[in-house]
Each structure stands twice: as C-alpha cells, then as structure tokens.
C-alpha cells in the first residue's frame, strides 16, 4: 500500500471531525472519496498530508508511519496536496508558481517542468502572467501543474472542479486521469461531481459524518440505482 490510514481521529481545535477513519490507496490507482459537505473529506486529506494533527489513529506511507509529520517533509517524500479553491499563489506569475513547486528540494527540475508544459501548454504560454488573472480552468491547471513539479507518488485532490463550468469540470477530470496514466501518480480524489469522479476512479470510499460508510469498486457503485441514497 502507498498510503494507509487506520482509525484516524482528527479535527479543528476541540471539534472532532474524523471519528476513526480507515482507508488505503495503492500505488498508481485513482480512488474517489465522496460524501456530503461536512462529512470530513477535506479534514481527512489535510490530516493525511500533515496540515492537521491527528488526535488518534495512524497514517502509514510506503509502509512507514508518518502520523503527525510536517507537510514540508511529506512533500519531499512524494505526497502532494491541491486544496479546495485556489491551490496557487495568485500574486505570483505562472512561472514563479511552478518554480515554487520545487521549493522543498531547492529548485524545480527543468525536465519535469517541460513535462508539465507538455501536459498543460497554456501554462507555458502564460508563464509571465499573474496567476490570479487566469481563468478558473487555467488556475486549476496551474494548481495541478504546481502539485506535479516534484513528480509525487500520491496526489491528494480536494474538489478540483469546484466553481468551474460543466465543460471545464470534464476537462479537469480528464487531466487528472492523464496525470495518473502518464506519470503513474496515485490519486485520492475528493469530488462533488460524483458520477464524473466515479468514471475515472478504480475504487471509491463514501464518507458520512466523519466515518467511512462504504467502500466499493467505482464501477459497481456507478451501476447502483440507489447511488444517491448511499450518502
């Protein structure tokens, strides 16, 4: 297993949001994490990445315990996180954003930057443009590009389609699939567009009030008629 959480408990201050979550993601797979707002999906991603401290349970990455380890160390070890909304530095240029993607190892590798430009050519064209002035779709591409600079083994994606027009939602999710295919990056995807997320994922977890209520193959869940009653 690439990452594994066992009985994870976490929250903000004294407010507990995760009540013993167990989940795993293998190398190279896309796993969807779905559930209503407030189910604890974002809290789970932030805890796995090290932005929030775990109050209980364990996180193992590559077989080694990383519970409570700082995000900066996890980044260097191949974990990457794209937060909800702006996963970019809006005041900096597109080029500066991508360079910062390699900050934790000194500098961004030119070959890897070239691969990102190949995947998202618009980022090369808009290299000197301030990131905050890009359209929503372009900002999301930049957020994905920024997360890919260190060629992570696991990408934690928090609602990459949030606020995007339907046509762009499809494009962004296709990009996620392309990243997985091209670089072999495993993806744990939190997404509100459930059907579209299930079409690109191999497995799925359904979250309800801070717990995993269901785990299944994405294909099987997609075929169920009572899909919307599950969460």
């Amino acid at each position: 297993m690439l990452i594994e959480a066992a009985d994870l408990v976490a929250g903000y201050g004294t407010k507990q949001e995760l009540h013993g979550v167990s989940l795993r993601v293998a190398a190279g797979e896309i796993v969807a994490l779905i559930g209503h707002n407030g189910a604890g999906k974002t809290t789970l991603l932030k805890t796995l990445f090290g932005l929030l401290p775990a109050l209980g349970g364990e996180v193992r990455y590559g077989g080694r315990p990383i519970t409570g380890r700082r995000a900066a160390l996890n980044v260097r070890d191949g974990l990457s996180f794209v937060p909800q909304g702006h996963g970019i530095f809006t005041d900096l240029t597109v080029g500066e954003n991508l360079e910062l993607g390699g900050y934790s190892v000194g500098a961004a590798d030119p070959d890897r930057l070239a691969a990102i430009h190949d995947l998202f050519p618009i980022l090369k064209e808009r290299q000197d443009q301030r990131a905050g002035t890009l359209s929503g779709g372009q900002q999301q591409m930049l957020a994905l590009g920024l997360a890919l600079v260190l060629r992570p083994k696991l990408l934690l994606l928090d609602e990459p389609s949030l606020g995007l027009a339907p046509v762009l939602v499809q494009r962004v999710l296709e990009s996620v699939q392309e990243i997985n295919r091209r670089f072999g990056t495993a993806v744990l995807l939190v997404e509100q567009n459930v059907k579209q997320a299930l079409r690109i994922a191999g497995r799925v977890y359904v979250m309800k009030v801070g717990q995993i209520s269901l785990e299944d193959r994405a294909e099987a869940l997609l075929a169920r008629r009572d899909l919307w009653q599950l969460f």
Partner: peptide, 23 residues
C-alpha cells in the same frame, strides 16, 4: 531570489506556502 519568492508566496497564501514545503 528564491527566498524573496518564498516571502511573496507566504504573503499570498500561508497555507499554500506550507503545502509546497515553505517553513
């Protein structure tokens, strides 16, 4: 400079700065 860009990054978004590994 790299450090200067890190300062501007923190000014723009402290959370994103931590995500890319800036202390």
């Amino acid at each position: 400079t790299r450090t200067g860009r890190a300062i501007r990054a923190v000014a723009t978004s402290p959370e994103m700065a931590e995500i890319v590994g800036i202390d």
